[in-house]
Design a protein around this nucleic acid. Structure first.
Lengths: 172, 172
DNA sequence: CCAAATTACTTTAAGCCTAAAATGTTTCCA
DNA sequence: TGGAAACATTTTAGGCTTAAAGTAATTTGG
């Protein structure tokens, strides 16, 4: 039972990157391209939302989450879904309540929890914006074939899973 | 030569979206997934940069641009490359000059232009961070095969081109 | 040659965003 | 039961980001 040699092999394989620095240039390029695509589309959508509806992208995103939850969501739910910090949501909600798009109330059963919903106005405005928003997205992706779309969906799902796993490893 | 009927057909095909509202749900889902992947990875990189090097992501990104340009760049160049506003770059550069990472000087030939470069310190620190950064990216994308990476690169290039075309159409 | 347009950058006002600390509430368990 | 831990949210301090307006330098076209 060659314990020592096993151990050495293990170490060897674990430290391979150190001994023969691997080339990760392809992954780096992929990340930059992914970032470029997102930044490009995000900027375009942001600009159109502002011009057409005088609304910011984060407000739109928050309303989109609530539109999918007729019974409302807690601030924590929203924070997780939108992948932003808690404090961020607090301010965003504040402004949307102020403008009459959101309704906010303290949970009956747990006084820590705030439940927010779209108001009638909020829902109506969101639906109007969302309909147009969908055509912008369709236009931005117009040159992709249905097959391209399917394939991208698949590869991005794989990417997401890989990144989550890696992020989990760090925190573990 | 059925001109009238051709014309009607053309109109029909052009206005199809109006008459029979198309379903763009797939493109929308694709956009959300793209955004999720980017947000996830970006957040992970941001956190690691902060913890390991006490540096922000925008500062790192700016230094990355300058590392590729030994002769320096103008603020406008940087702004275009990073796809952020001019005013944003002004502030970012200010802080990096302050901390000794950047050198900034007015162009000899055009007094409107500011040329910025990495200082020796800035370059050394960036190289140190970049080496580690590359391993994080490799780890985040670790579950993708080389073929996945190639295919994603191809599809994202196509996506970028499509989005740029669409963005151009709007401004035209 | 010179006024108008363009270009490069900065400033401003407002909002977005994060990490960390603080507050109040509920749950857990010894 | 009572105190520690966990949880939901808010607050704070600082930085990022944008669009739009402002300043200064250069280019352009009549």
């Amino acid at each position: 039972m060659p314990v020592v040699s096993d151990c050495i092999n293990m170490l060897d394989s674990e430290t391979k990157a150190v001994e023969t620095p691997e080339d990760h240039a392809e992954e780096l390029r992929l990340w930059l391209r992914l970032l470029t695509c997102t930044t490009l589309i995000e900027g375009e959508v942001r600009g159109r939302l502002r011009q057409r509806f005088d609304v910011t992208l984060p407000r739109f995103d928050l309303m989109a989450q609530l539109d999918k939850a007729p019974d409302g969501m807690t601030l924590s739910d929203v924070s997780k879904r939108m992948m932003v910090s808690n404090g961020n949501v607090t301010g965003l909600v504040e402004r949307l309540v102020e403008s009459g798009h959101l309704d906010r109330r303290t949970s009956e059963t747990d006084r820590r929890v705030q439940v927010i919903r779209l108001t009638k106005l909020g829902r109506a405005e969101f639906r109007r914006m969302a309909a147009e928003h969908e055509t912008w997205i369709a236009d931005l992706f117009a040159d992709l074939t249905p097959k391209d779309v399917r394939e991208l969906m698949r590869l991005l799902a794989k990417t997401k899973a890989s990144a989550q796993k890696s992020a989990g490893r760090r925190r573990a």
